Computed example of a mutant assay.
Amino acid sequence: MKAAILKTFGSSLVVETLPDPILGTGEVVVDVVVDGVLPYANEVFSGKRKYLLSLPMASAAGAIGRVRSVGPDATRLVVGDWVFCDPTVRSRDDALTPDITLQGLSARGVVCACRSISHHGSFAEQMLVPTENAISIGSIDPEEAGRWCALNLLLVPYGGLLAANLQAGETILISGATGNFGSAGVAVALAMGAGCVVAPGRNEKMLEDLARRFGHRLRTVKLSGDEGEDRERMKQAAPGPMDCVLDILPPSAGTTPVRAAAMTVREFGRSSKTTVLNDQISV
């Protein structure tokens, strides 16, 4: 199979031929149809992010594809099924605190054993993935396959919104709304039936774009950096008490915007913090 290989950090990807994946029990081989490119991929490939990549490898995490072959323990998936390849690979011998790797991208702590099994990512014609990571998405229009790649992005804030127990009709503030995951959180919250989403941020262009896309159920707030002033602006933007807050700011944002957002929630409201650090997600 053809694959785009990263041989050394800082070098360009090279298209080469790799051996086809060898199917085993508990695994599925998927023909990759389409994959997204991370906005910070250059930082990963250059080595700036210091990810635990075992080079050379075909990198990139997650893909939309079609099942090529299944192991003997698969009972639902069949050849030809459209699937979302979940890049989060967990070891199977500790359900409470499994070792985790993002296939083709990074690992938490030491490089775990599942890295050697799920080494190559989706910058290849085929992927070998754990059976539980090949998630059927039903019959789709092949022309729409690229749009399904958004699942990787949308599922991150969705986990935080589930933790916040967002209910239809409620008002939620999404701290970090102008970022990659934050703007996805706006879309997911509205899709879940939020009555109003308050979207604070410093990026005016992005705030304008969010307002254009999502209409009257979205209230944008331009942040000044002053904690007290920003807190009042966010509260005033809401049509009523703030039922919950989803904080999806990166750790580099500091504590000031985090505290300002958290203090807007009503009494007995809820707050959820979703952190993406080195591509490992905690809620």
Rank of each mutant, 00 (worst) to 15 (best):
V30F: 05
A238K: 07
G182D: 07
G138S: 03
Y51N: 05
G182A: 12
E143A: 14
A74K: 01
K48F: 03
V14M: 07
L218V: 10
R212E: 13
R219A: 14
V276R: 02
N203I: 09
V14T: 13
A184F: 04
I281L: 07
K50V: 03
M57H: 01
T171H: 03
A134F: 01
L153C: 11
C112N: 08
S175L: 10
V111H: 00
T131Q: 13
M242H: 08
G215A: 10
R49Y: 10
L18Q: 07
C114R: 06
L162W: 00
R270W: 10
G47Q: 04
E132V: 08
L190E: 04
A199T: 13
G201D: 12
V79T: 13
D81M: 12
P130T: 03
L53W: 01
L53Q: 06
Q280W: 09
G169K: 04
G269S: 14
V33D: 14
G240H: 08
G24I: 04
G104H: 02
D209P: 00
A191Y: 00
V29F: 01
P19W: 00
R49D: 12
A262D: 13
W82C: 13
Y158A: 15
S282T: 15
L105E: 10
K50T: 04
R90D: 09
L154E: 05
S12M: 10
S224G: 11
